[in-house]
Design a protein around this nucleic acid. Structure first.
Lengths: 230, 230
DNA sequence: AAGTGGTCTAGACCACTCC
DNA sequence: GAGTGGTCTAGACCACTTA
């Protein structure tokens, strides 16, 4: 190892934390000291430590220095791909059916999530996503035409609303919730399962600036597991 | 704005993507060009673009250049704090009860998850976590004494195994799965709910190098929602 | 073969925060 | 006030990948 990379430094620091040479709560040397010890530039040490801080393993504050986290808040990163790619990525055949496409007045809880005034009318879509011809996920979506402009011209039988939005309406942020629920009659019917079956649900609201774009409830067929590594 | 920061550059690039000046799939100028245009060093542009790439908004490849992602794979970051801090963070009072602490032979599915040989014996713990004296989450945990050394000396009535491990056994990685399930008799009894109720479950296996540390199944009381923003 | 991103260096100034 | 991390610059070399 002639020249040390930031990944080398990161690994060296991590090893010392794991070996408890620097136990939880302990202060570790400053960037300049570590740079001198490891024989590299301070910028290299900075990048290594910055990544460890982003991962929650150390805590950094100006003047106070860098400390090993006492309660490392592990951060798991979930990837939220377009449904079609998620299914195809597992080697299965994707298909979808548009079950409903109507302009309606949304129920209050949807209106509240989207922070819209009473009386507003939205585009309501229900889509069943399939993997190898089996029900995979049932999507109940409300769309704001003011931000999702062009949706009325889209052929949602060819491309799902999910995918159309990702490709055509860049959004600035969103709120996501994951929870378990008993399948509603609607969901049970679409997924072809008994009502009240435990299903995994994802609710997402996305925004473009301060304007709501869409609110969705994704009900996954029983057996679905969302996985990741840390 | 006298001197531009990497955050400024990131915002400028993001704005052009949102405005579709650089539509999905389009190639954007090279780092050197952008640095010249924005009047900053290439390293500054590099950091801005690197962060956008980590967020999944653009794709970068040497020689091929940088392109706006066609199907942005949005990444959601979930924080997995110690249960006590999660409860206290919401202003509620935390408490826990150790319901079981026995050395047992684990069932096959646990043994397989931990990649251990047949016949191994593990420490089996069952803990009920409470928020404001109400059942919050039921934890069923299997521990490998070879990696979780010192666990036998810990007073698990004072500090939960969850917290003891975080503070005493640094781990290198883990697998996590989130899904919905019907409450088992065990879980329903501990959480004081009807069997078969839909509950949110997190299964986690953690490793220290190639050696398993612990395998847990966390069953949350009905109503629990795991939330984040993107 | 050559273009493009990936990274390192050395030095500098600055912002924040603790004492 | 002073110590520490946060960031920018200018230049350089290198690694990867595609044309």
């Amino acid at each position: 190892m002639r020249q040390k990379s930031y990944q080398d430094i990161r690994a060296l620091v991590l090893a010392r934390i794991h070996a408890q040479i620097w136990p939880p709560g302990a202060r570790i040397p400053g960037e300049a000291d570590l740079a001198a010890e490891f024989g590299c530039a301070r910028a290299t040490v900075n990048r290594a430590l910055r990544e460890l801080a982003e991962a929650g393993l150390i805590e950094r504050r100006r003047k106070a220095g860098t400390r090993v986290a006492v309660n490392p808040v592990r951060k798991a990163t979930l990837e939220l791909p377009v449904v079609r790619l998620e299914v195809e990525g597992r080697g299965e055949t994707y298909d979808h059916k548009l079950l409903l496409r109507e302009t309606e007045t949304p129920p209050d809880h949807v209106r509240a999530r989207m922070n819209l005034p009473a009386g507003v009318r939205l585009l309501h879509l229900k889509t069943l996503h399939m993997a190898d011809a089996c029900p995979y996920m049932f999507e109940d979506r409300w769309l704001n035409r003011r931000t999702a402009t062009g949706i009325d011209a889209a052929d949602l039988n060819r491309i799902s609303a999910n995918e159309w939005l990702v490709q055509n309406v860049p959004f600035s942020g969103g709120d996501i919730a994951f929870f378990a629920a008993a399948a509603s009659g609607d969901e049970a019917g679409a997924l072809n399962i008994a009502p009240e079956t435990a299903i995994f649900v994802v609710e997402r609201t996305t925004w473009r600036g301060l304007d709501p774009v869409t609110a969705t409830r994704l009900a996954y067929a029983p057996g679905y597991r969302m996985t990741t590594r840390i």
